[in-house]
Amino acid sequence: MRDVISPVRTLTDRIWVTFVWVVTGFFIVNLFAMIGTVIVSSLGTRWLGTWLPAGWTGNWYLSAWDEFQLGDLLTVTFEVVFAVVALSGLIGIPAAYALARRDFPGKRVVMLLLLLPLIIPPITYGIPLATVLYVTGLGGTLNGVILANLVPALPFVVLVMIPFIEQIDPRVEDAARVFGANTFRLFWHVLLPLLLPGALAALLLVLVRTIAMFELTFLTAGPGDQTLVVALYYAVFAAGVRAVQSIDAMAVVYMLTTLVWLIVALRFVNPTQMVTRGKQQQTDNG
């Protein structure tokens, strides 16, 4: 995209550029300041009516760890997240392969079925889903939370993987067959290594999205299987019960768990893919 006609430097052009930079700059400064507030607050002793807290301390993290049982929360969060990642990978990637390689009657219906959970907001389908889960006894259990989180995760993996698989030349698989590879060896020696980068990217994105998925977990989790983000919601909701700094410490812990994986994910994917669901894969980054 380097060779788009370079802009002519006219007055309107400069006004435009200034406007763009002021808007983006304002947005980013406020964003960072907002995140900064949380971090500063979590590290401050007492902060009332001043620019910065009166003193600095790390004790809020210790108290938050006990108060909110962060250890348990992190365990549950990662149990849910890794189960969702594993299941959506196991079910989603083979399905994406079939959808990318075969044309069969009913394929359009399947594609529509994949798009709907990504378009319909979680709170809309989450309420009937939670109802069904509670009726079947899965509501308020870890398994229920995992199942609910699969609904957006599965289509996401499939829709990210389909264009990725489509760009792998099917003739390469034919070649492997002709040169003597049976199904297992074709998978092991040719498909797996070729699919790995795409699968890794898709699964990392699912991981980040599941950590941050509030609505579905909120609607289906019982008291013992809350994830970090749901616990954070309850803490903020009941503000005043706990010290603000303690809640902020928890928020920082949540932020770190998300950001670590985001940074890992961004090594493999373009940030735009976080929102475009693989529909607009940019092949050239160079």
């Binding site: 034919d174 067959r177 049976n182």
Partner: peptide
């Protein structure tokens, strides 16, 4: 195809 033991050169080469 894997049982026939033929060699094949593809149009776009289909190299791994």
């Amino acid at each position: 195809p894997e049982e026939r033991g033929f060699g094949m050169v593809f149009q776009n080469y289909a190299l791994f």
